[in-house]
Design a protein around this nucleic acid. Sequence first.
DNA 1: CCGTCAAACGGAGTATCAGTCCGCTTTGTC
DNA 2: GACAAAGCGGACTGATACTCCGTTTGACGG
Lengths: 191, 191
Amino acid sequence: MAEQRTERADAVRNRRAVLRATEQLLTEGGGDYVSLDRVAALAGVGQGTVFRRFGNRAGLLQALLEERSRELRDAVTHGAPPLGPGAPTRQRLLAFLDGLGEIAERNAVLLFAHEQACAEDKYSDPSYQFWHRHLSTLLADERPDLDADFLAHALLAVFDGGLIRRLTPSDDPRRFTRSIQQMATALLGRD
Amino acid sequence: MAEQRTERADAVRNRRAVLRATEQLLTEGGGDYVSLDRVAALAGVGQGTVFRRFGNRAGLLQALLEERSRELRDAVTHGAPPLGPGAPTRQRLLAFLDGLGEIAERNAVLLFAHEQACAEDKYSDPSYQFWHRHLSTLLADERPDLDADFLAHALLAVFDGGLIRRLTPSDDPRRFTRSIQQMATALLGRD
DNA sequence: CCGTCAAACGGAGTATCAGTCCGCTTTGTC
DNA sequence: GACAAAGCGGACTGATACTCCGTTTGACGG
C-alpha cells in the first residue's frame, strides 16, 4: 500500500528505451520481428533488463498497449460525456466502441502480436477485464433481458488484430469501427 | 486435375498414426504439449513424415479440426433441414450455430491450439472461408440492411478457443451455444 | 564528498521448437 | 524379381523465450 521507493533514474531511462525500441521494431517489421534479443539490442540494454521490467514477451506488448489506451480508460471512468458517466447509456456505448475501435485500427499489428503472445491469459489481463466490465455494465443497463456478460465478451472478441487488419483498407480507416457500431446498434434494437 | 495415384499403404498408416498421436497429446497435456517431435515420437514416425504430410504445425491441427467438422460441413450443403437447404433461413442459422457451437465446445483446446498456430492465416483457411460464406449468405438473406460480411466475421470471432473454454463449465456444456444463439436472435430482431 | 548496499544491469548460457535435408527403405507395378 | 518413384527417418539448423549470476550503478545518510 504505502509508497514505493522512487524508480531509479537508469531504470526509467531503460524502460523508455525498451518501449521505444519495441515500437520501432513493430512498425519496421511487424509482430514477428519483435524478438526480445532484438528489442534489447536496439534499446541498448541486456536481455535481462527487458525481462526484469516486463516479465515476458506478453508483458512487454501489454505495456505498450496500455500506454496507448490509458487515455480512453481515464475518459471512460472520469471523463466528460459522451464517454464518461452522465451521458445516456446507448450514447456512451457507441462512444466507447468508437474510442476502442480507433485504438484498435491504429494498433492492429500490436494488438495481433499481443494476442499471440498472451495466449490464454488474455482474459485474465486487467486491461481486458476493465473493458469487459465497462461494456457489460452498459449492455446490462440497456438490455437487461440479454446475457450482458457474454455479449461483452463477444463484442471484445471482434477486436481481433488479424481481423481488423483485414477489415481496415487504407482508404477507409474507420470501416471496422463503423461496422461494429452498426452491429451494436442492431443488437440493442430500435426500442 | 485428373486422378491422383492411390495413396501408398504405409502413407495411410502413418497419417492415421500421426493424427491419433496428436489427439492423444492434446487431451493429455493441452495445446502447448503438442510439439511436433513429440507427435512424431508417439506416432512412431520421423519428424520429416509429419511435415511432408501436413506441411506444418497449423496444417496438422487443421486436419484434425476438419476431420471433426466434416459432418457439419456436409449437412450444411447437402443435408436435410433444418441444417441443409430448404428450411427457413432463421432456423437454418440457429441450427448451424448449434452445430458449430457443439463442435467448438467439444474441441475448445484443439480450436485454441489451431488459432495460435495459424496466426494470421486463419482467415485464408478454406474451412474458415466456408463457414464465413455460409453465415454471410444466411445473414444477408434475413437482414439485407446490415453488413452481412462483417457480421459473419464477427460471429465467427466469438468462436475463440480460449473464450469457449472459459465459458464452458462442466456442469453446463452448452452454455456457449445457447448464448451465441441468443445473440444471433437479438441481432436479427423480432421481425 | 564519500561509503554503503540494495537495486538494477548485461549478456552468455539453457531449453525448446518448428522446420529442412538427404541418404536409405518400402511399395506398387510389370 | 527388378526397377522407379514415393515415402521415410532423424540428425541438423536456426530462432527465440527466458534464466542466472557476477558486476555495476545510483540513491542516500553522514
